[in-house]
Design a protein around this nucleic acid. Structure first.
Length: 216
DNA sequence: TGCCAGGCCGGGT
DNA sequence: ACCCGGCATGGC
């Protein structure tokens, strides 16, 4: 079951990359927009997040200041298409408050923080768990941390590369200890996993005919 | 028409 | 340390 090693991990990447090419993640114009998207996409289809972000930009650029000023109820109404809009409005407000209290509302200043410390602090914000924190670090700050998500488990488990019962941290460690610490690589790798999962690794479909990882 | 989507929290064992 | 219900919209 667990035949994970450096060679396999790189082989998976090579296959996906040569099949799909670069994915150009994260979809978002600014690091702040990436962070907003990371929170809004929790257990939610990206197409819904796009509508929400579009609503947020309706009358002005999407900046920390704009969200800081916006009434939470108004914010909730705007992000309604992304689902869980009440909890997500609070999560966005909590993050922005954190940003202003600690880094003067400046995203660049936040990413000047030691990544290890920053991850810990992000995790203490309500509504930011391991995946969201790591997405913020990697796709917002270009910091080399590997993002693990439901697709990662499903793809690797279905191809017999990883045991089902494995924690987020363990799974992340597996990737990071066996791959060069390269933000560009981690960026593409995660995006490619999402891509192949959407096409060949849907829930309740054990067979993946034509999957680029077939027979690995 | 139900199931699913790039999670996370809080309360209960 | 896990387990589970709750949170909610839009697409297929």
């Amino acid at each position: 079951m667990d035949k994970m090693n450096r060679e396999t991990l790189m082989e998976v990447f090579e296959r996906l990359y040569s099949h799909y090419g670069p994915q150009g993640w994260w979809p978002g114009e600014t690091p702040f927009e990436v962070i907003v998207g990371a929170i809004l996409t929790q257990n939610t289809a990206w197409s819904n997040v796009e509508k929400a972000i579009s609503n947020l930009k309706k009358d002005g650029p999407l900046t920390p200041e704009a969200l800081f000023r916006m009434d939470e109820t108004e914010l909730a109404m705007r992000i309604r298409p992304s689902g869980y809009y009440n909890v997500k409005a609070r999560r966005l407000k909590d993050f922005v408050r954190f940003l202003f209290e600690n880094y003067g509302g400046k995203i660049e200043e936040m990413f000047n923080e030691d990544p290890r410390i920053l991850r810990e602090r992000l995790l203490r914000i309500r509504g930011i768990g391991p995946e969201t924190a790591d997405s913020i670090l990697l796709y917002g700050g270009n910091i080399p941390v590997f993002v693990v998500d439901a697709y990662t488990y499903r793809v690797f488990n279905r191809h017999g590369l990883l045991p089902e019962e494995i924690s987020y941290e363990e799974c992340q460690k597996m990737f990071m200890e066996n791959l060069p610490k390269d933000a560009g690589l981690f960026n593409e790798y995660h995006a490619l996993i999402v891509r192949v999962a959407k096409e060949f690794c849907k829930k309740g479909r054990p067979l993946c005919r034509g999957c680029p990882l077939e027979g690995i």
